[in-house]
């Protein structure tokens, strides 16, 4: 069955490519996963609760913010509002992915949504652009690779617990910055992308002190709008 062998090979090749493309992001997020696990223990969560947070919520920024609020004994409403605002950028990803997932079964849609992160979205969109078509297999493998690494890193943090209280002062956030630059600057020669990066970057820095939970979404939407309006001439 040469055709079957060929498609199996191409599927495994695609899966390997998805893992390879997601690898830099996995490396960058390990310190944050460890920090998330350690912080959960430090604020009084049980190891099971700490791990379930990463297994079920699976959203780094929302988890860190939520745990900070839990530690300060904030009401549930404040925790939920913060979670919604911080993770509302996923609504954008959901709109973009909608066209790709309409043909999938409901269970696959649920799985795809569950593992839809900044990282999976960016890697998958880059692959779609490169290959000319969306691959559900690529997106699922990318998302699951990230899910596994995030949860293993959280587990390490849970085991470390109180040992590394100054983990966030080591400059580990640099890896996040380097990874996201690597994922965006390759396309900076396209004028609208340049505008999107410039506008959202400047606005996020300016807005962060004012809108601590929502600055990412506001700056990103403004950057997208600027790219849409100013970039019309340059795009075909």
């Amino acid at each position: 069955m040469p055709t079957s062998n060929c498609s199996t090979r191409s599927a495994s090749g695609l899966a390997l490519r998805a893992v390879a493309d997601t690898l830099p992001l996995c490396i960058a997020v390990i310190p944050w996963g460890i920090l998330t696990g350690a912080l959960a223990i430090q604020i009084g969560m049980s190891p099971l609760q700490a791990q379930l947070m990463s297994l079920l919520v699976f959203a780094g920024a929302a988890q860190l913010s939520g745990m900070t609020l839990i530690a300060s004994a904030a009401p549930l409403g404040a925790i939920f509002a913060s979670t919604f605002v911080i993770s509302s950028r996923h609504l954008l990803y959901s709109v973009v992915f909608r066209q790709h997932v309409t043909q999938l079964s409901r269970s696959l849609k649920v799985i795809m949504a569950f593992i839809l992160t900044d990282e999976m979205f960016a890697v998958s969109e880059a692959h779609t652009k490169r290959s000319g078509q969306f691959s559900a297999l690529f997106a699922l493998v990318s998302g699951f690779s990230f899910y596994v690494i995030w949860n293993v890193a959280t587990l390490i943090g849970i085991l470390i617990g109180d040992t590394f209280k100054d983990l966030d002062s080591l400059g580990l956030d640099f890896a996040i910055a380097a990874t996201f630059i690597a994922m965006t600057f390759g396309e900076l020669r396209r004028f609208p992308v340049f505008i999107a990066v410039l506008a959202s970057g400047c606005l996020s820095v300016l807005l962060k002190p004012i809108f601590t939970d929502s600055y990412i979404v506001i700056a990103a939407l403004a950057g997208m709008l600027a790219a849409y309006v100013l970039g019309q001439e340059g795009e075909t």
């Binding site: 973009v96 900044d118 999107a196 970057g201 990103a220 950057g223």
Partner: peptide, 17 residues
Amino acid sequence: FLSYSSYAVLTAIWAPI
């Protein structure tokens, strides 16, 4: 408009770092 979302969101996350 949405095609710029990953560039804009990723930049909005890393720039304030």
